[in-house]
Amino acid sequence: MCVGIPAKVVSVKDGTALVDASGARREVSAELLSSLDPGDYVMVHAGLAIAKITADDEAEAASVLSSIAPAEVNNGTED
Protein backbone atom coordinates (compact mmCIF):
# COMPACT_ATOMS: atom_id res chain seq x y z
CA MET A 1 0.00 0.00 0.00
CA CYS A 2 2.80 2.40 0.85
CA VAL A 3 4.43 2.35 -2.56
CA GLY A 4 4.97 5.48 -4.62
CA ILE A 5 4.36 5.09 -8.32
CA PRO A 6 5.77 7.59 -10.81
CA ALA A 7 3.31 8.37 -13.56
CA LYS A 8 2.86 10.67 -16.54
CA VAL A 9 -0.12 12.99 -16.59
CA VAL A 10 -2.41 12.37 -19.57
CA SER A 11 -5.15 14.86 -18.76
CA VAL A 12 -6.38 17.00 -15.87
CA LYS A 13 -9.93 18.03 -15.05
CA ASP A 14 -11.61 19.34 -11.90
CA GLY A 15 -8.86 18.26 -9.51
CA THR A 16 -8.59 14.79 -11.01
CA ALA A 17 -5.76 13.62 -13.24
CA LEU A 18 -5.69 10.70 -15.62
CA VAL A 19 -2.18 9.27 -15.30
CA ASP A 20 -0.19 6.64 -17.14
CA ALA A 21 2.17 4.45 -15.10
CA SER A 22 4.11 2.21 -17.46
CA GLY A 23 1.01 1.71 -19.57
CA ALA A 24 -1.49 1.31 -16.74
CA ARG A 25 -3.95 4.20 -16.65
CA ARG A 26 -6.16 5.37 -13.81
CA GLU A 27 -7.61 8.52 -12.36
CA VAL A 28 -5.93 9.99 -9.27
CA SER A 29 -6.63 13.03 -7.17
CA ALA A 30 -4.59 16.08 -8.19
CA GLU A 31 -5.93 18.31 -5.43
CA LEU A 32 -2.54 18.75 -3.75
CA LEU A 33 -0.89 20.20 -6.83
CA SER A 34 -1.82 23.69 -7.92
CA SER A 35 -0.61 23.55 -11.50
CA LEU A 36 -0.52 20.32 -13.41
CA ASP A 37 -0.44 19.88 -17.15
CA PRO A 38 -0.50 16.92 -19.53
CA GLY A 39 3.05 15.65 -19.95
CA ASP A 40 4.08 16.41 -16.35
CA TYR A 41 5.35 13.58 -14.17
CA VAL A 42 3.91 13.01 -10.71
CA MET A 43 4.52 10.66 -7.79
CA VAL A 44 1.31 8.84 -6.85
CA HIS A 45 0.57 7.43 -3.41
CA ALA A 46 -2.73 5.70 -2.59
CA GLY A 47 -4.58 7.41 -5.40
CA LEU A 48 -3.18 10.85 -4.68
CA ALA A 49 -0.56 12.73 -6.69
CA ILE A 50 1.72 13.96 -3.90
CA ALA A 51 4.44 15.75 -5.88
CA LYS A 52 5.52 16.83 -9.32
CA ILE A 53 8.78 15.21 -10.28
CA THR A 54 11.33 15.24 -13.04
CA ALA A 55 11.89 12.06 -14.97
CA ASP A 56 15.66 12.07 -14.80
CA ASP A 57 17.05 10.41 -11.67
CA GLU A 58 20.55 10.04 -13.12
CA ALA A 59 21.10 13.76 -13.70
CA GLU A 60 20.02 14.21 -10.10
CA ALA A 61 22.60 11.67 -8.94
CA ALA A 62 25.40 13.43 -10.79
CA SER A 63 24.39 16.78 -9.34
CA VAL A 64 24.19 15.52 -5.74
CA LEU A 65 27.47 13.63 -5.94
CA SER A 66 29.45 16.42 -7.48
CA SER A 67 28.46 18.68 -4.61
CA ILE A 68 29.59 16.14 -1.99
CA ALA A 69 32.64 14.55 -3.55
CA PRO A 70 33.79 16.68 -6.51
CA ALA A 71 37.29 15.24 -6.63
CA GLU A 72 36.16 11.62 -6.86
CA VAL A 73 33.43 12.39 -9.35
CA ASN A 74 35.68 14.38 -11.65
CA ASN A 75 38.49 11.83 -11.52
CA GLY A 76 36.27 8.75 -11.53
CA THR A 77 36.57 6.17 -14.24
CA GLU A 78 33.85 5.09 -16.57
CA ASP A 79 32.77 1.50 -16.91
Binding site: E58, A59, A61, A62, L65, S66, A69, E72, V73, N74, N75, G76, T77, E78, D79
Partner: peptide, 16 residues
Protein backbone atom coordinates in the same frame (compact mmCIF):
# COMPACT_ATOMS: atom_id res chain seq x y z
CA UNK B 1 28.06 14.80 -22.33
CA UNK B 2 25.55 14.66 -19.49
CA UNK B 3 25.33 10.87 -19.76
CA UNK B 4 29.10 10.64 -19.54
CA UNK B 5 29.08 12.85 -16.45
CA UNK B 6 26.39 10.68 -14.89
CA UNK B 7 28.21 7.43 -15.57
CA UNK B 8 31.38 8.88 -14.12
CA UNK B 9 29.52 10.11 -11.04
CA UNK B 10 27.84 6.76 -10.44
CA UNK B 11 31.10 4.89 -10.94
CA UNK B 12 32.63 7.18 -8.33
CA UNK B 13 29.71 6.59 -5.98
CA UNK B 14 30.09 2.85 -6.30
CA UNK B 15 33.79 3.14 -5.63
CA UNK B 16 33.16 5.24 -2.52
Amino acid sequence: EQKTDTRRALAAAREI
